[in-house]
Design a protein around this nucleic acid. Sequence first.
DNA 1: ACCGAAACATAGCTATGGCTATAATTACTG
DNA 2: CAGTAATTATAGCCATAGCTATGTTTCGGT
Lengths: 148, 148
Amino acid sequence: MSNTRPSDKKQADHFARAREAQSVALLEDYVEMIGDLHEELGEARVADLAQRMGVAQPTATKAIARLKREGLATSRRYRGVFLTETGAALAMRVRARHRTVVAFLVAVGVPEDVAEMDAEGIEHHVSRHTLTAFEDYLANRLAADHRP
Amino acid sequence: MSNTRPSDKKQADHFARAREAQSVALLEDYVEMIGDLHEELGEARVADLAQRMGVAQPTATKAIARLKREGLATSRRYRGVFLTETGAALAMRVRARHRTVVAFLVAVGVPEDVAEMDAEGIEHHVSRHTLTAFEDYLANRLAADHRP
DNA sequence: ACCGAAACATAGCTATGGCTATAATTACTG
DNA sequence: CAGTAATTATAGCCATAGCTATGTTTCGGT
Ligand SMILES: [Mn+2]
Ligand SMILES: [Mn+2]
Ligand SMILES: [Mn+2]
Ligand SMILES: [Mn+2]
């Protein structure tokens, strides 16, 4: 094997971080959706979750099991799913990030529906630093639009 | 279960597409990396691939098996990995997209190293449409910078 | 109060993508 | 050219995330 270049470790770390982000992505999407359902319907039922996530019902049940394991949600048999404090806090952050990403994409010229689609995947790989850059861009754009 | 709202199918479809993009992500990264290695070293050995992807060597071997199954690469035992025409074409598109995403992030104020990190995950969720928006933004930015 | 339907859980399958340990092959070196 | 080192392959493990089929519980209408 060829010797390890100094840049290799950094690149490997980038891939590792992307993998980590991906492993959290499912948790984020479910937690956000549970929050949405509670706001809209007053409860989050497994069947609604499955339908909105576009998966079969047992797939949603399994995801919920993972949420519980990780301390993000609780559930009562045949009664629906509930976010823990940690889960609710995550949901808020995830929802805000989702909205920022969509708004940013739209601001740089991506059509609304495409932005909504791409954001669903992109959001999970947007670091705090990049999110701030997006927010700053939106703030400046807004200012520019209101300038004569 | 509550009735199906019209927007549910669209949202479910967004998640489905994000899942699909994710399932292709690994192929894209490997194919791009194999291309890089051939350019830099004249060959793509399994050990180098594993090192740069930040995974164990058998993990890379397994990924290569999938590349072969999907017609993107070939390999000769103990001799390295080679891209098919399809694989090489994909590598070119993926590399170009990667560069565009990084350049775009930097252009909107993300530090270079952070851009490189986030892009590794983001790139796989950037649709043709969004990529075009990024390219247009870069073209205009460039023009604006050269304006007096 | 019951019975059928709806909602949910469980069982069990597949594929992917990690890993370690070890076998097999090729390359190198004295 | 023999023996060792390096590289690659294989075996076998685990966790995740999807699915269908089927059992169980709860709900709602008569
Ligand atoms: Mn998402
Ligand atoms: Mn989202
Ligand atoms: Mn990538
Ligand atoms: Mn890339």
